[in-house]
Simulated assay, not measured.
Amino acid sequence: MTHPADRTDLDALIACPRCDALYKVREPAHRERAVCARCHHVLIAPRRGAGAQIVAVALTVVVLVVAATIFPFLEVSVGGATNASSILDAALAFSGSGLFLLLALAVAALIVVIPVTRALLVIYVIAPLVFDRRPLPHASSAFRLSEALRPWSMAEIFAIGCAVALVKVADLATVSLGPAFWMFSVLVVLVVAQDSFLCRYSVWKALEREARPT
């Protein structure tokens, strides 16, 4: 656990992103975690080899999202008629004009564009650090943008909504799950795993350290 801050050296302070409690940093050892004493939010959680794992997961997320938009997500059969739909078809189902078009584009961005963008930004930031290279230009801004997009990446919300809809549709028609459904299910798990592996404090410190002139 970190200790409450008792001096004003900003480089030695860390604020809890959940409750704004301020602490003096004491970096934990391997497999230890620094936790906020007020709300128990994990502040620092260094893990050896986490960078390579995060890059691998991010690459897998990109591949799965691209594949999931191509293959059928589900197939509905009723009265002898069959219709297959992909994730993009579902996202753009209400695309027409005006507000409906904006709604369709927003849904597509939340479940496809933003998760891919976050994954690519994470690769851009962390891959050079994994290979002991200096950060790429504007790596700090890229990581800040990735963190800003995190609340708007709603792949798991889409998955929950699909599950609820399938329960209701299953009583009215025959529903077959396509390969994209399983890809998207794995994708949701990987997005959660990526966020759990990522120690943001360690990334910021690595960016600051590597960016300093030698």
Rank of each mutant, 00 (worst) to 15 (best):
D20L: 01
L172A: 12
L92Y: 14
A148T: 09
D20H: 06
L172V: 10
A93Y: 15
L59R: 14
V107T: 12
A165S: 09
V76F: 04
A159I: 14
L120T: 05
V189G: 15
L145S: 03
A52N: 02
E32D: 09
P115M: 00
A52T: 08
I87V: 15
V42T: 15
A50N: 04
P151Y: 10
A163E: 03
L74P: 08
V42E: 05
A173F: 00
A104I: 13
L103T: 12
A193R: 07
R38A: 14
K205D: 09
L101E: 06
V167C: 01
G80E: 00
C16M: 02
Q53M: 10
F131R: 10
V122K: 01
Y201A: 13
V65M: 13
V175I: 11
L166A: 14
L166D: 03
H30K: 11
S77M: 05
S140P: 05
P46L: 09
V188I: 13
P46Q: 05
V66C: 03
T2G: 09
P46E: 04
R144V: 14
L59F: 09
S86E: 08
E156H: 14
R133Y: 01
T214W: 00
P151N: 10
V130K: 01
P115G: 02
F73V: 00
G49Q: 01
L120I: 04
R48F: 00
L121E: 02
R38L: 10
F100Y: 10
R200C: 12
V189P: 01
L172R: 05
I54A: 13
C16K: 01
A45D: 06
G51Y: 04
I157K: 04
D20M: 03
A91I: 03
A104G: 15
A148V: 09
L198P: 05
P4Q: 00
A68Y: 08
V203I: 14
S176H: 04
L103Y: 08
F73N: 09
G178Y: 04
I44T: 05
R7N: 13
R118C: 12
G178W: 02
P46Y: 03
R38H: 13
R209S: 07
P135I: 00
V112K: 03
A142Q: 07
D6E: 07
L110P: 13
V65W: 06
G178C: 01
E27L: 13
V62E: 10
Y201M: 12
R48D: 00
W152E: 07
V188W: 04
S176W: 00
F94P: 12
E208M: 11
P213V: 05
L190T: 05
L136M: 10
